[in-house]
Every structure is written in structure tokens, then in C-alpha cells.
């Protein structure tokens, strides 16, 4: 794979797509993941973080190839474990902006437990799940989101295990920002990722991103150009109008769960947002501050020396 030459960005120069493009994506032509990548460039262009402070990480899968295509610090970790790795990055250096990309198998199957526990910890990470309802990289096996009856190489007569409902699962983890989008809706997708990035805590966006190779047409039901219906969550505006009462309050977990239980293809937008729960970054910083206060900001040497003195 050849890299596309990128001119150096002088310090302070604006981050443009030109600077952010790296290796040419290896995805199949028409793969939904291209659109997610294009939206992510737009998100970074809007955010204008210092270039060196952006980190793009991923697990393993077609979608997880993402970091090679973004010219930022980043990496390609092992299958399903990018979240705990990213927690180490975020907690190791609070100045960084950490983005994690991955697939449905990576996130909901092998990495399912990490999803739950990363949400418990609430580190400052933005996680984008590119859900194609199938295992793409390994060429069409059943994924945890494959619908019942979908024929794969591991279920030639059709998938039989109950697929997980991503929104319901994510809400249950306690993630402090949960949203859903569709790779054919570039503006919506960009907006969702942007809001997720600005959220102070663990934010997750599920993006339905079609695998044209192994599950063509999977998301047509939500694509008006393919005869489907695109239905967005109508968020509360707090404008006092009578219509507003019926709109969705994103801080209302129960209401979010109700939307999550709507029949396929369901709604798109921000399901849930918790702006008050402290991040693990903040909690650990507090622990450190209190410990330092107690030890009167002793130097590392003094601290260890006084510990040894107690062991005499």
C-alpha cells in the first residue's frame, strides 16, 4: 500500500482534509466506510484540534483499518480491545483527543464486555461503530447484529441467534452519549460525530455502514433513495411551544430506551446524553490532587524516602 504524500502542516496552520488524508483506503468500491471517513475529515476540519493531539485508534476488521487512512497519531490494535487501549491513552495524557473506530463484531462480540466497562469508567473517548451486520474482513460470517435468517458462511441456512439491538445495548452500558446515524446521510453523520467529539466523556455513535460485498442493501429500509424512510429523532428545543412537550428529552434514559425499542429501521439521532456524570479523567485527577494535598506536594524522591523510613 502506498502512502499519499502529505505536506507538513506548519504549527498553527489550519487542519484541512489535504493534510489529514493518509494511505488510500483499501475498502471495496462502494463500501459505506468511505463515507464515514469523509465525514470524519470534515469533523476534524471543524474541530481544528492541534494536529499532534489527535489520536485515531481501532481494533481489527475492515472498518478498523480506518487509522491508516487518517494522518494523525494512531494505531491498529488487536480484535475487540481498542477501547481499553484507548482508555490508557486518554488517561495517560488528558490533552489528547482520542477517537476509536471499529465494526459490529469488534465492538459487540469480542469487545462486548469492554464496551460495558469502558462506559462504566466514562473516559474521554469518542467511539464510532461502523455497523454492517456482518463480518466483512473475514468474508461473511454471522455478526452479533446479523438479523435472524440472514445467510452467512457460518449460518448457511440463516442466522438463528437473536441479534443484539445496538441502541438498547449501548444505553444499558451507561455510556454518557449514545447516537445513531447512517453512512448515506453525510451531514447527519458529521453532526453526530461532531457532537460526540464535543461530549465530555465516553461517547458512542453507531453508524449503519453498508458492506456492499457481503450484505448489499442491508440498510435500504432507512434510505429514501432506495425506497426507505429516514426518520430522525425530534429533539426537545425547550422553546415552550406545545409541540415541544412531545419531543425527545436526550437526558431521559427511559424515553431513549423507548425509541431504541421501536421496530426496524428505527430512528436516527442523539438517543441519550448525560452531561453531569464525571469522567474518569476528572475523577483520577481529583484523586491525584487530594493525594498531593495530603503529602504537601512532596517530591517523588521525598515520598519514596519517607515510605522507606516507615519500613525500617
Amino acid at each position: 500500500m502506498s502512502s499519499v504524500a502529505t505536506p507538513p502542516a506548519p504549527a498553527g496552520a489550519p487542519l484541512t482534509k489535504k493534510v489529514l488524508v493518509a494511505d488510500h483506503p483499501t475498502w471495496c468500491p462502494g463500501c459505506g466506510d468511505f463515507a464515514v471517513l469523509a465525514s470524519f475529515y470534515r469533523v476534524l476540519e471543524k474541530l481544528q484540534y492541534p494536529h499532534e493531539k489527535i489520536v485515531t485508534f481501532a481494533g481489527i476488521g475492515c472498518s478498523s483499518r480506518f487509522p491508516y487512512f487518517v494522518n494523525t497519531h494512531g494505531g491498529h490494535y488487536i480484535h475487540g480491545r481498542a477501547l481499553p487501549f484507548a482508555a490508557g491513552i486518554s488517561l495517560g495524557n488528558d490533552d489528547l483527543h482520542v477517537f476509536v473506530f471499529g465494526g459490529d463484531g469488534d465492538g459487540f462480540s469480542i469487545g462486548g464486555n469492554h464496551l460495558v466497562h469502558t462506559a462504566r469508567k466514562n473516559p474521554r473517548i469518542t467511539y464510532v461503530i461502523m455497523d454492517n451486520f456482518v463480518y466483512g474482513l473475514t468474508k461473511k460470517q454471522t455478526s452479533p447484529t446479523s438479523p435472524i435468517g440472514f445467510k452467512t458462511k457460518t449460518d448457511p441456512t440463516g442466522a438463528m441467534d437473536q441479534p443484539i439491538n445496538p441502541m438498547r445495548t449501548l444505553l444499558n452500558t451507561g455510556a454518557t452519549f449514545v447516537a445513531r446515524s447512517h453512512a448515506t446521510q453525510v451531514n447527519h453523520m458529521t453532526d453526530m460525530m461532531l457532537r460526540a467529539a464535543k461530549h465530555d466523556g465516553f461517547s458512542v455513535v453507531e453508524i449503519l455502514s453498508e458492506c456492499v460485498e457481503f450484505y448489499e442493501g442491508a440498510f435500504d429500509a432507512a434510505n429514501p433513495r432506495k425506497g426507505g424512510t429516514w426518520s430522525m429523532i425530534d429533539e426537545k428545543k425547550n422553546d415552550g411551544s406545545p409541540e415541544d412537550a412531545a419531543r425527545h428529552d436526550t437526558s431521559d434514559e427511559l424515553a431513549a430506551m423507548k425509541i431504541a425499542l421501536e421496530p426496524w429501521p428505527g430512528k436516527f439521532g442523539v438517543y441519550y446524553e448525560n452531561k453531569s456524570r464525571p469522567t474518569k479523567n476528572a475523577l483520577e485527577a481529583g484523586l491525584i490532587a487530594r493525594a498531593k494535598e495530603k503529602t504537601k506536594n512532596a517530591t517523588d524522591l521525598q515520598l519514596l524516602q519517607s515510605t522507606f523510613a516507615k519500613l525500617r
Binding site: P84, A87, L91, N113, H117, A291, K292, L303
Partner: peptide, 24 residues
Amino acid sequence: PKYGGIFVQCEDEIAAVSTAIGFS
């Protein structure tokens, strides 16, 4: 914490080694 550091109790050993490599 007295030294300005962090030790994370993880959900399992795979997460633990992953978080540690993330720190590194």
C-alpha cells in the same frame, strides 16, 4: 496518585494489558 500517577482496575486481564500498553 501521590506521585501524580494512575493505576486502573480493569474488567479482565486483557483489558488490563491493553490499558497498560495504551499508557505506554
